[in-house]
Design a protein around this nucleic acid. Structure first.
Length: 838
RNA sequence: GCCGAGAUGGCGGAAUUGGUAGACGCGUAGGUCUCAAAAACCUAUGAAGGCAACUUCAUGAGGGUUCGAUUCCCUCUCCCGGCACCA
């Protein structure tokens, strides 16, 4: 019998070379016939930033998970598109350049080369002929082209205003990149700064960005988070007028039924300036108001948050008329009212809002109850002005609406009345802001804009795209864009556009690059257009997108916006405008100590070392076996060895089985029913589990199969016929591609291996006949407790009476039935008998 | 505070149109092989009681619905993710 030792390094190196030479999955033609297109399968992994530290075990999980999908779907006969690329622009390479002086172009290239080698070593079956990198001019040329299309439609614009500024990264940040007032990247305190910046008008798609979610198969929490981020909220805007000048002050509220309880109005400091109300402030209050405004604008975002409990404000001395009852109430400025929520003006109803209550207490403002509650103690407290309450109740002090249900009839009637009277209307507000895309950084795609001597912005002419990133720059951060230091950049602009013309010095947020890469995959080498409309129509949307939960808000929102825009411009034939039909998230691989892996904690597992010790197959199968794909899971070094043991065992048993056919004429084992059953059960289990990404249970099934196989192992008789051996090998192919390929090659002696690679084979079919057993095990319960088991002929399972009378007569049942009477008998077909006795 | 997800042996986890809780793997104990070790294999392994057959308890806590609940409903506790002075 043969040498049973499996030399994982030799075997894996051998197949890496052979696969590379045969370009197994590369260079697929993307134009499909209509019939083929029905079977298309576009699999996408969120392309990685090629960091200098190389591949992490955390990268292995999603890549492997999708690779298994790709291999499995190919074996099912699907047309699989599984591309790869690099999100290569970004801060780390630039920061490294600042430190070392090495050009980001160089470090990025080196990092990509490292990643590519490591990914290939894992046998991820990408189509490398479509590989892209966002820092390549042939890629960012089209990023710039999309910018120009947005500009031409008025969806890219320059705006001046307060922006988030990270003093450490020396750049502005999008709202989405500020986490708890800190820079998402370096944790520095973010400050507010006035700057003229470029924005994309994502808000013009805000409704569709919510509604489109109904058409995609995404995890519900993810959808919910997107919806919350956009923050659509329906409310009523109500016009109050200044008593003197009748100037309109519009408030927005979701609780308009409490409008009779308004005892003051509060306006955000920014809004106060914007409406130029300071001129109307009575002379005796002017200096006080000005002092408050000055200190309010000095506060950073963070300071405003710290002040949460201690509400500050100032009386403007102006009075406002409540349109519902003509009452005059004071107007205050307070920074607890936010400029970008609603209209920036709030009606103060201290009896029914905690913040208004705190403010009213502090400044001695009136408190007026307009909703009465059933709980008398609570009602008394609200009436006495001891505490505010928001809840279900009956309207009081509200003129003709008294006695109506506050959240029902009252709310409805009052809205109708105010709208009819002409001082209110329904208004939907959103939390989503336009997307700020300017970055004062070097390593990104230049914004394709130039300025004439008068300072007017013009698009760079299309024939000048790609608008190349200059290379002669000083990386040292100065608070200004590094591109300013490029001599070549200035000369280029003057040469092409004329004397006195200047370039835009800012580059684009890298999220712009990654918002359309899945479209570029479909035309990776196209020099004429960003993508081919017909090819896009064939392959979009992506069938399965696997990304980390950290991308839920930013990347997905931006990508969906781009897709919808390109659809509207006629570049993309995709009615839904939804690029990702189905999405799932991978969890995090934690260190053996259950904590997030990090160098400082010393709990980092290096994938290269696992490959060296056990092989890439073991690494792949182990990571898939750890638990559900979406869960965070701790690494267990012992369990890796267990998976290696399982794979070696499977290899040993199958090589032995193949060798027996070479050894001479042996008989087939007499009683191998259990093994055949298990084999067909495993085929069925994998066929069901793999498309659902339930890899942990699929692998458990293969383990069960190998356990039965091993138990019966014999050198004297055959356990499997030739077809069964090859089917078994095919089952392993998506999960352990190296070992399966090696076994498949060995099985060539059986005369059945039809293809040059097992990965080009078709998926095995299971036979129902093996899954049905002659007898079925029934559970016998008494009062719901399991007391007995019964093996009953499967074909006679429908005969309820026979089963019940048999159960009643069982000797072993008598101790449960003696002295009792049967009240009820339950039989669930083929599963359970339950006797209810008293 | 609001939105969302979750809690099952010593550990990772399996099982839900309600029907044998703990598949599979790790760990642990005992054994086979060996001069010995490693490797490999075999057996046992939720807890408690019992010589045993077996019995009772057990899926974060408490209640409910049901012949029967890890699964459905209500209340609570704890942990995780996100948002948050959102009017």
């Amino acid at each position: 019998m043969p040498d049973q030792k499996y030399d994982h390094l030799a075997v894996e190196e051998k197949w890496l070379q052979k696969w590379e030479a045969s370009q197994l999955f590369c260079g697929g033609d993307l134009s499909l016939s209509e019939a083929e297109a029905k079977d298309k399968e576009y699999l996408l992994y969120a392309f990685a930033y090629p960091s200098g530290s190389g591949l992490h075990v955390g990268h292995v999980e999603p890549k492997t998970a999708l690779d298994i999908q790709a291999r499995f779907k190919r074996m099912l006969g699907k047309k699989v598109f599984f591309p790869v690329g690099w999100d290569a622009f970004g801060l780390p390479a630039e920061n490294y350049a600042i430190k070392t002086g090495i050009h980001p172009k160089q470090t990025t290239k080196t990092a990509i080369d490292t990643f590519r080698g490591q990914v290939k070593r894992l046998a991820i079956s990408y189509d490398w002929s479509k590989e892209i990198a966002t820092n390549h001019p042939e890629y960012y040329r089209w990023t710039q082209w999309i910018f120009q299309k947005l500009y031409q439609k008025g969806l890219a614009y320059q705006g001046e205003g307060k922006v988030n500024w990270c003093p450490s990264c020396q750049t502005v940040l999008a709202n989405e990149q500020v986490v708890n007032g800190l820079c998402e990247r370096c944790d520095s305190q973010v400050i507010q700064k006035d700057l003229k910046q470029w924005y994309f008008k994502i808000t013009s798609y805000q409704d569709e960005l919510i509604d489109g979610l109904e058409q995609v198969d995404w995890p519900n929490p993810t959808k919910q988070q997107q919806i919350n981020w956009i923050g659509r909220s329906k409310g009523l805007s109500i016009d109050f007028n200044l008593a003197e000048t009748k100037q309109k002050l519009t408030v927005w509220t979701k609780f308009h039924e409490t409008v009779f309880g308004t005892t003051f109005l509060v306006i955000a400091p920014e809004k106060f300036l914007e409406m130029q109300l300071e001129e109307q402030v009575p002379t005796d209050r002017k200096s006080t108001v000005q002092a408050y405004l000055d200190q309010a604008f000095k506060k950073t975002e963070e300071e405003r948050k710290i002040g949460e409990k201690d509400k500050t404000g100032v009386d403007t001395g102006l009075l406002v008329i409540n349109p519902v009852n003509g009452q005059r109430v004071p107007l205050y400025i307070a920074d607890y009212v936010l400029m970008n929520v609603g209209t920036g003006i709030v009606m103060g109803v201290p009896a029914h809002d905690e913040r208004d209550f705190a403010f009213a207490k502090k400044y001695g403002l009136g408190i007026k109850q307009v909703v009465s509650y059933a709980d008398q103690a609570l009602n008394d407290a609200v009436a006495k002005g001891e505490k505010p309450f928001e809840g279900e109740g009956v309207l009081v002090n509200s003129a003709q609406f008294d006695g109506l249900d506050a959240w029902g009839e009252g709310k409805k009637a009052m809205a109708e009345w105010m709208i009819e009277a002409g001082f209110a209307k329904w208004q939907t507000t959103y939390k989503l802001r336009d997307w700020l895309i300017s970055r004062q950084r070097y390593w990104g795609a230049p914004i394709p804009v130039v300025y004439d001597p008068e300072g007017q912005a013009h698009l760079v002419k299309e024939e000048h795209l790609p608008w190349l990133l200059p290379e002669d720059v000083d990386f040292k951060p100065t608070g200004e864009s590094p591109l300013r230091s490029s001599k070549e950049f200035h000369e280029r602009v003057e040469r092409l556009y004329g004397k006195g013309w200047t370039p835009e010095y800012d580059t684009m947020d890298t999220f712009v690059d990654s918002s359309w890469y899945y479209l570029r995959y479909c035309a990776a080498r196209d020099h004429e257009q960003f993508a081919d409309k017909k090819v896009l129509a064939t392959w979009m949307p992506v069938n399965l997108y696997l990304i980390g939960p950290e991308h839920i808000v930013l990347h997905l929102l931006y990508s969906r916006f781009f897709t919808k825009f390109l659809r509207d411009e006629g570049y993309l034939d995709l009615p839904s405008g939804e690029p990702f039909a189905k999405m799932r998230h991978q969890g995090m691989i934690l260190g053996p100590d259950g904590r997030k892996m990090s160098k400082s904690k010393g709990n980092v597992i290096n994938p290269d070392e696992i490959i060296k010790e056990y092989g890439a197959d073991t690494l792949r199968v182990y990571e898939m076996f750890m638990g559900p794909l979406e869960a965070d899971k701790p690494w267990n070094p012992r369990a890796v060895a267990g998976v290696a043991r399982f794979l070696r065992k499977t290899y040993r048993l199958l090589t032995l089985e193949i060798a027996k056919y070479q050894a001479g004429s042996l008989k087939m084992a007499e009683n191998r029913q259990e093994l055949l059953q298990k084999l067909h059960w495993a085929i069925q289990k994998l066929t069901v589990d793999l498309p659902e990404l339930k890899y942990n249970t699929a692998i458990a099934a293969l383990m069960e199969l190998s356990n039965v196989f091993e138990k019966m192992s014999s050198e004297q008789v055959h356990l499997l016929d030739k077809t069964e051996i090859v089917d078994y090998i095919k089952l392993l192919a998506p999960l352990a591609p190296f070992m399966a390929e090696e076994l498949y090659e060995q099985s060539r002696v059986l005369g059945l291996a039809a293809q040059k690679s097992v990965h080009l084979e078709s998926w095995p079919k299971f036979d129902q006949a093996f899954l049905l057993e002659a007898n079925t095990n029934l559970i016998i319960q008494v009062n719901g407790k399991v007391r007995e088991q019964l093996s009953w002929p499967t074909e006679a399972l429908a005969d309820k009476e026979a089963i019940l009378s048999h159960v009643r007569g069982l000797a072993s049942m008598q101790k449960w039935l003696a002295d009792k009477s049967i009240k009820k008998e339950i039989y669930v077909l083929g599963k359970v008998v339950n006797l209810v006795v008293v």
